[in-house]
Simulated assay, not measured.
Amino acid sequence: MNLTKIDYELLEFISKNPNCTKQDILQKFKKEKAIEYRLNNLSENICDDFGRMIECTSYINHKCDRIYIDCGVYHEKYYDCYFLNPVGHKILSDQKSFILQEKINHFKYSFLYPILSAIITAYITTRFIEN
C-alpha cells in the first residue's frame, strides 16, 4: 500500500498520542475527508499477490480486551482506541529519515553548491584578470 502525506500525518498523530480515540483523530483531521477509511486501511493487514492476508503487516492496532465465554472460547472486544504497532513505528521512522535526507539534498543543491560555484568562479576570474 502506498501511503500519502495525510497517512503519515495520521501515523505521526497516533505516535504522539498513544491510545487516542477515533473521536480525537476525527477532531484533529476534521478538514480532511475519508479519515475513517484511511484508519481502516492503516489497521488492515496487507495481502500478498495471491490475495492471502499477511499477518502483522498493519500499521496501527485497536486496543482490545479478551472476554471469556462458556466452553473456553475467547472473544475480542475492540475499543475505540488506536496505537502504533512495530510496523507503524518502522514506516514512520523511515519516512522521517527520508524527509531529513531530502532537506539536506535540497540545501546542498539549492544553496550550498551554487554559493561554492560562485566563489570558485569569482576566484578563478580574479586570478586571470590579475595576470
Rank of each mutant, 00 (worst) to 15 (best):
N2A: 11
N2T: 12
L3E: 06
T4E: 11
T4M: 00
T4S: 10
K5Y: 06
I6L: 08
I6G: 00
D7S: 12
Y8S: 03
E9V: 11
E9M: 10
L10T: 04
L11H: 00
E12R: 08
E12I: 11
I14W: 02
I14G: 00
K16T: 12
N19G: 13
N19T: 05
T21I: 02
T21A: 09
K22A: 03
Q23N: 10
I25A: 02
I25K: 00
I25G: 01
L26K: 09
L26R: 03
F29Y: 06
K30H: 07
K33T: 06
K33P: 00
K33W: 03
A34Q: 12
A34H: 12
I35M: 01
I35S: 01
I35E: 00
Y37G: 07
R38F: 09
N40Y: 14
N41I: 15
L42C: 11
L42I: 10
S43M: 05
S43I: 03
E44G: 01
N45S: 13
I46E: 14
I46T: 14
D48G: 04
D48F: 02
D49F: 08
R52C: 13
M53F: 15
I54R: 15
S58L: 01
Y59W: 03
Y59C: 04
Y59V: 12
N61Q: 14
H62D: 02
Y68L: 01
Y68D: 01
I69N: 02
D70H: 05
D70N: 03
C71I: 10
C71K: 13
G72Q: 06
V73I: 11
V73F: 07
V73E: 07
Y74D: 04
H75P: 00
E76Q: 09
E76K: 12
E76P: 02
K77M: 13
K77H: 12
K77S: 11
Y78P: 11
Y78H: 15
Y78E: 15
D80S: 08
C81N: 11
N85R: 03
N85K: 05
H89K: 13
K90T: 09
I91K: 07
I91Y: 03
L92K: 05
S93N: 09
S93C: 06
D94F: 05
Q95H: 12
F98W: 01
I99H: 01
L100I: 14
K103Q: 15
K103D: 13
I104N: 10
I104F: 14
N105Q: 14
N105H: 15
N105I: 12
K108T: 15
Y109I: 15
Y109C: 13
S110I: 02
F111G: 02
Y113E: 04
P114M: 05
P114S: 06
I115W: 08
I115C: 10
L116K: 06
S117Y: 02
A118S: 08
I120F: 09
I120N: 08
T121D: 00
T121R: 02
T121E: 01
T121H: 00
Y123M: 01
T125A: 09
T125F: 11
T126N: 12
T126Y: 07
R127W: 03
F128W: 12
F128T: 05
I129W: 04
I129F: 07
N131Y: 05
